[in-house]
Design a protein around this nucleic acid. Structure first.
Lengths: 364, 364
DNA sequence: CTGAAAGCGCTAACAA
DNA sequence: TTGTTAGCGCTTTCAG
């Protein structure tokens, strides 16, 4: 069962009795063609089941309907949701999307940039270690590039590229201020990977909120993390093992907040009665947690949509660079509440606490 | 800050004082070139920062180092893990990967196939509604295609394509037999989407295991689902609302098992004391649940790795079609245990006692 | 061992 | 309105 070889534009032209150029024109609507010929050409196109070769077309239009995403890890819920959003925009425009997971590795980021250069239509990148200068060197300025990241780190670069930038600092402030507003004073922070811009800004936001409220930032309250579930889990275990327990913890992202939530529950805390937890991003899983996670929405879906729309706009010819700013929105769910100081006594024994907590939940 | 235009092979040839063909030969090692010229060419390549244009190359080799994935939804943890595994294999081979989310929609599957045809290097597809005949019609037989799916549905097709097929029926039996081995007799099953081959086979596996053990398959025990978290959640709510509660439930996949787990917990069941739950696939999240989910591993990572390896092998020239079979492995964690029919067991602690009593009353 | 030249399938001036 | 033709950047016979 062997299929015939794919028809080329020449086959169509020959079969329709017209020139190659005419066929090209009816395909691309690039010149007016008499309706008689147009009809004939379209018929043969269908008869031959002809489809233009995108490679050949791209080679002389120097533009492939293909865009690439360079993100840390596509299997991370944040980035898979992001990538889905990009696809949902790209799809109706007939663009395909390549996904590259860099794991935040400098060499890998550079390798992707290099290997994508020159044949792909456009790139969306969330730089971890790669700098604007790297991008400029590796990609040049002939190609549409959209940079994701924190407002400041992206803002500072006088470049011609499009951006979708997030207000991480301000959003982190919002998160912490929510906790403060509830009456918390001992608020811990679980960090993201220390070297990334977004993570740094979120930490700074935490600091600023604490300072503005005149709250001390105890060293014991800031703990390392890495944006992963496991990282959040471990961080929370550490936090709860320390002498001065916080009554609330803000996490650098939702995934680590989810891990932290699980750790806290395993250690017998009931959330939010014993401990408030707030996340960051608003991935879908946040709403599904138990209790549903309060968070600051800087949604991957929304950011992905924005990124795809502005990059594709550029690929389609827009000249002026565009910058989109995304601000966080507080989404209050059930993982945060006012602190309850009355349980302070019996809380010494965590095993006992666990039983009480379970009991409590059941009664309610 | 304008970069110079990208260097072409002609620039290199001119600058090195050799012919275009010679440059091509040193790049591709397609003929022996005197080491002197080779050196000179390589130097100019570096000096000009030249990188061959993949499109032009692909146009006459008719082979782009690019493969596409057509899966239901990249933002689903199963598929994002799968896709990551594919990338991890493709990456070192310098292949890029396009991801297409079909949402299991027939038209969308067909559209992707059509739009990928003829320029992409190879395709990995997990067909939902698309048939082998469709693939054959849309893609022809000139292009490497790897079909994912259930062993039978894929096996039945006398086709020249590569396959990575799973033993869904047998694996589902393993899951249910595990439950039966623990002493369960009232075992429910939360289905996947009814129309998909994998889902059907898993249901059949459940049925067979029940029958083999001489256990009745009550209608009340089989409930609809759709492979989603929410679907599992709802299904469990329904199941626990029915008069005859099961003591164990097998789920068509992990994601819905996770949803079911959450629902059961919210309804006051402790797992596995009051109810055993077993999943399917072994996505990473299964091990992170609380309690960690017992499951049958048909791991997306492993399947993705296999798929990518065999497809790339084919893209690199292997002629014979290859079929890989993946069998499920039981992974016992903490969400399954023997059913507890009396109150005297090890779990006579006060909190549970109360619940147990309630549970008993309902059971009658 | 090296280079001239003919394409790969398509687009886009430019002629007719 | 339609056709001729010169490429896009690269690979690949096939002479030299």
């Amino acid at each position: 069962m062997t299929n015939p070889p794919k028809a080329t534009i020449r086959d169509v032209a020959k079969s329709a009795g017209v020139s190659i150029a005419t066929v090209s024109h009816v395909i691309n609507h690039t010149h007016h063609v008499s309706s008689e010929l147009e009809q004939r050409v379209n018929d043969t196109i269908n008869a031959l089941n002809y489809h233009p070769n995108k490679l050949a077309r791209a080679l002389n239009r120097r533009d492939l309907p293909l865009l690439a995403l360079i993100v840390p890890d596509i299997s991370n819920p944040y980035w898979s949701a992001f990538s889905r959003a990009v696809q949902d925009i790209a799809d109706p425009c007939e663009y395909s999307v390549i996904v590259c997971s860099s794991d935040g590795l400098y060499e890998r980021e550079k390798r992707f940039l290099r290997s994508l250069n020159g044949w792909i239509g456009g790139i969306i990148i969330h730089p971890y270690h790669v700098t604007i200068a790297d991008v400029n060197q590796l990609i040049g300025d002939k190609m549409p590039v959209l940079i994701l990241g924190d407002f400041i780190s992206v803002e500072a670069q006088p470049q011609n590229w499009d951006q979708v930038a997030s207000h991480n600092l301000e959003s982190a402030r919002v998160a912490v201020e929510h906790l403060i507003g509830l009456g918390h004073r001992k608020i811990a922070f679980i960090q993201g990977p220390e070297s990334t811009p977004t993570s740094k800004r979120r930490l700074t936001g935490y600091r600023q909120a604490m300072e503005s409220a005149g709250l001390p930032i105890l060293n014991d309250l800031v703990v390392a993390g890495d944006y992963t579930y496991k990282g959040g889990f471990l961080a929370m275990k550490e936090l709860l093992g320390r002498k001065a327990r916080p009554t609330a913890v803000a996490c650098a992202n939702d995934l680590s907040a989810l891990g932290a939530l699980e750790a806290a529950k395993q250690m017998g805390c009931s959330i939010p009665q014993d401990l408030s937890i707030i996340g960051f991003d608003d991935i879908d899983e946040a709403a599904l947690a138990s209790p549903p996670l309060t968070t600051v929405r800087l949604s991957p879906r929304h950011i992905g949509k924005m990124a795809a729309e502005t990059l594709i706009g550029r690929m389609k010819g827009r000249q002026e660079p565009t910058r989109v700013l995304v601000e966080g929105t507080l989404v209050i769910r059930q993982s945060t509440a006012a602190p309850s100081f009355d349980l302070a006594g019996p809380k010494a024994d965590s095993a006992l606490l666990g039983k009480e907590a379970i009991f409590k939940e059941q009664e309610v």
